[in-house]
Design a protein around this nucleic acid. Structure first.
Lengths: 340, 340
DNA sequence: TTGTAGGCGTTATCAC
DNA sequence: GTGATAACGCCTACAA
């Protein structure tokens, strides 16, 4: 480690006090132009780098934000991070990125560490699968600024930025019913303990109900958010007798749909002729698939941006009210549902 | 902000000294079992969260690593970050993620901030486009631990983890020559000021030279790393008279190839029959394209992992020598080159 | 305009 | 086993 240059070192070299150096370096008004210049020059030549650790200890502010994400390789999240980054960059906040790997225990640990590091606020997309709100409740009550995004937990005294999951899921399901006349529609759901898992599943149910289609238990499989889990869930459906196959499948997200597509293909079936399928996300891969995937486009960048903006506002103004911000999706009609 | 609970608060409540509380909480040996228990209990009930900022000021260690990336949405990098994360998670380091957006000035600013925040080390994939080594040289000489990855800058006293860019580029170009008999091969290069830009271009040249194929200036276009720049570069080639079209195109990376493919399609040409094309990266989209892309698979996760391991070793042991670590690629033969 | 004193929350060190 | 003291690098508040 380099013998660190401190304000005191500079002060000693110049025969002035630490405070004078501090003031000069922070561009305060009450410093002689001449001394200021001498200080700046000396600081430069000595290779001074301010110590934010010490500064933070005094100011009780770190200009640091924690981001907790369930899975960095899911294409949605890098895009969100980019949105967050764009905002924090302009406001001079740094980002602690933590990947919870879909494990709530890991997420909890990460959040504790972030608090120990005294981040000014935390953006969370929850990996929570057990209903355990007390943890969040406690950290929020303790005064930690939190904004949830994508996977929200509401009524906890924190803001939340999400897409209109339920109505989007409703719309894409209804598209299958109205435009294509399907009424045998399966659903590969996400975990019901996660908000988007619940909301999207409800949207599916809403659509069936609105069109008087009964829900068939055998066609609803609770799986995860990943390609692998989608693949496995679809396999289960394909174990049914052929005459009980659904005409179409709606899924909780694109990775899951992509896994399901693989299972359908491996069973020797054609999309959309034998089984149609739709996703949710608009993953970067969706338009490029052999049969391009009909899906719900989530404006990931926008979600990240709005969440970061809200958090910074909450940090910088204690009066900032909590909000549930909804960012709107659009339907991307492509070939996998039978369109085109 | 919550009125923060400190060691002193706990000490006062218990009528002991701050040091006793500190020792108990840090599980030191020389504390009475009984008092230790009382302390732990009290700390728990008061909702104590250790202050790493203060701790870091004393210990001169932050357990924090900075990661500087040129473009988070390029699919290669999230995968690298995941590899880094896997290592740092186990060693209890936190990650500062900064996106330089391919701008060297932004990268410089980010690195300065990271130094001010007293990170223990920095992982850098450089956005540098001007030859300006002095900046890196200075921070390394100052004692900041640095490991470069993917886009390396060598001989600066820092370690480096990269793939065998030059020989990989050689191999994929040679594949076009030997297996498909092409000898009119264009190249969409990256910026020559970036290591991977240079290395991969050299690999292309090596292959032509090895097979006595002259280099045609009109077929070598210096572009960027993005889809957009690949698209534009390809358009330039397609402005040539038809009889001067190349038979195949090699590109600096997959996004660039994907852009080029769009340009080729828009010109009404078929891949690989009219023009064959190969990439470099093995982007998540590569196998899914209408005509799956032949490319070089980069083990991104592995790169991240190795870089993080090397950095942590350098941090924890001053004697750790510098190394240039090469991670090996594999050729992914798909349809875009004419295979299959 | 400049300097001094004290403290931010923690730990190392030395004394009891 | 426990406590007092000083220090980490910086800043606020007040004094000169």
């Amino acid at each position: 480690m380099s013998s660190e240059v401190t304000l005191k070192n500079i002060a000693d070299e110049l025969g002035v006090s630490t405070m004078t150096v501090s003031r000069a370096l922070n561009n305060r008004s009450n410093v002689d132009e001449n001394t200021k210049e001498r200080v700046l020059k000396k600081a430069q030549s000595m290779g001074y780098t301010p110590n934010h650790v010490a500064k933070s200890l005094v100011s009780r502010k770190t200009y640091t934000i924690g981001v907790v994400i369930p899975e960095i390789t899911h294409a949605f999240f890098p895009e969100v991070v980019r949105g967050i980054e764009e905002v924090t960059y302009k406001s001079d906040y740094q980002l602690f990125l933590t990947n919870a790997d879909e494990q709530f225990e890991r997420e909890k640990k990460a959040i504790q560490t972030l608090r120990s590091k005294r981040v000014d606020g935390i953006l969370i997309s929850s990996s929570q699968t057990e209903a355990e709100y007390s943890f969040y409740k406690e950290i929020i009550n303790t005064g930690t600024k939190v904004v949830f995004f994508d996977r929200c937990i509401e009524n906890l005294g924190a803001s939340c930025v999400s897409v209109n999951d339920r109505s989007s899921s409703y719309r894409i399901t209804e598209h299958l019913i109205q435009e294509h006349g399907y009424n045998k529609i399966a659903y590969l759901s996400g975990p019901q303990k996660v908000s988007i898992g619940r909301e999207r599943y409800q949207g599916y149910l809403d659509a069936l109900r609105a069109h008087d289609i009964p829900v068939e238990e055998k066609w609803v499989i609770e799986a995860g958010f990943q390609e692998k889990t989608g693949y496995e869930a679809m396999q289960k459906i394909l174990e049914l007798p052929i005459e009980e196959y659904p005409e179409a499948v709606a899924t909780v997200n694109d990775p899951s749909a992509i896994g399901a597509i693989r299972a359908i293909r491996e069973a020797g079936l054609e999309i959309p002729d034998d089984i149609a399928i739709v996703g949710f996300t608009d993953d970067i891969r969706a338009p490029l698939l052999g049969v391009p995937l009909t899906t719900v486009h989530q404006p990931a960048y926008e979600v990240g941006k709005r969440a970061a903006q809200k958090l910074i506002r909450s940090i910088e103004n204690d009066e900032e009210p909590n909000e549930n911000i909804e960012v709107h999706t659009t339907l991307k009609l492509r070939a996998s549902c039978g369109c085109k």
